[in-house]
């Protein structure tokens, strides 16, 4: 024991001690730090710095062409009194909640379906991925046409079928417009949920279902007691991403309605863009963007707890 403990010090006495910097370069605990450094630099310069800049901007009265001065919480007190902003929060929450829930339900349904023996499974799988592959702007433009006041194919079909007599003004009526953008978001988001959950389903060993079937489980009980619990970790990941993507959606709304009619479909992102870039009030726009952070943090925290490794996933001896 003693000789073992002494040997390193004896060695360092005979060999000249390396400099502090060299030791820092070689030490095991610091090695990890050096390897992380490039990634950290990229993250800091491309994520943290712009984010900080954006938050800083929200405390100034900057406009386009004018760096502005620090005005404290003025922008925030102003937007809190702004009905359009408050409405955009409510609509963003509703948009996220409704679209994410339906995306989850539909995605899970499709995943379960695709996990069964199905003719032309590979083909069906690729078809389901199409909405995800098409650039959002392109599909948004398609939806814009589908919901167009004059040329809507839906109105046209219904008129031809004799069900209605006038074109439906999908994007002109506030409630209809909200429903339409939510529909488009769901259409676009379902494949991601479905394919990811399918990947999760495929990790469940078929023999578990066989064992449960022999144990007397009905198909519903198979889902309730085997599939669902084993899928929860992946559901937590998918839904976190789905919620974040939906909450920060911009392209669909901007292409289809630009927040209209009468600001009824403004998400916080589109409102921020409109105020800051179109309207030129950079400070105010930044304040609107910054207001999204608490909501996003809440969503991330929620999923962080959801993602905690469950007891059954931990290995080793208890």
């Amino acid at each position: 024991m003693t000789s073992l403990a002494q040997s390193p010090s004896a060695k360092s006495a005979s060999v000249r001690a390396p400099g502090a910097a060299a030791r820092l370069m070689a030490h095991r605990d610091w090695l990890g730090f050096w390897f992380m450094l490039p990634a950290a630099l990229i993250l800091i310069s491309l994520l943290v710095y712009p984010l900080g800049l954006g938050v800083w901007l929200s405390f100034t009265n900057a406009t386009i062409g004018d760096p502005g001065k620090f005005v404290g919480l003025d922008n925030y007190s102003w937007i809190l009194g702004d009905a359009t902003f408050l409405h955009s929060i409510v609509f963003t929450l509703a948009y996220t909640l409704i679209a994410s829930s339906i995306k989850f339900a539909l995605g899970l349904y499709l995943a379960l379906l695709l996990n069964k023996r199905l003719p032309f499974k590979a083909l069906v799988r690729s078809i389901i991925l199409i909405p995800f592959v098409v650039p959002t702007v392109l599909s948004a433009i398609a939806f814009w046409w589908i919901f167009d006041a004059q040329f809507s194919i839906i109105s046209w079909s219904l008129i031809k079928l004799g069900l209605i007599s006038h074109n439906i003004d999908f994007l002109g009526d506030p409630m209809l417009a909200r429903a339409c953008v939510i529909f488009a978001n769901i259409w676009r988001g379902v494949p991601f949920v479905a394919i990811t959950l399918l990947a999760g389903l495929q990790t469940v060993s078929p023999s578990l279902y066989e064992a449960a079937t022999i144990d007397g489980a009905t198909p519903w009980q198979n889902f309730r007691f085997i599939t669902y619990p084993l899928l929860t970790p992946i559901i937590a990941v998918v839904m976190t991403f789905s919620v974040l993507f939906t909450f920060t959606d911009f392209q669909l709304i901007w292409v289809m309605t630009r927040g209209g009619p009468v600001n009824s479909t403004h998400l916080m992102t589109t409102l921020s863009y409109q105020r800051a870039i179109i309207g030129g009030s950079l400070g105010e726009g930044a304040a609107i963007s910054t207001s999204m952070i608490p909501f996003l943090l809440a969503a991330i925290l929620f999923s962080w707890f959801g993602l905690q490794r469950r007891k059954w996933q931990q290995g080793g001896q208890a």
């Binding site: 060993s205 023999s207 578990l208 066989e210 064992a211 449960a212 079937t213 022999i214 144990d215 007397g216 489980a217 007691f225 085997i226 619990p229 084993l230 469950r310 059954w312 996933q313």
Partner: peptide, 19 residues
């Protein structure tokens, strides 16, 4: 169906419910 046959099976990979 299996559940009405009154049999029990032990699988090669045990098929224990991990959760």
């Amino acid at each position: 169906p299996p559940k009405l046959r009154d049999i029990a099976m032990v699988f090669q990979n045990y098929a224990l419910y991990p959760h």
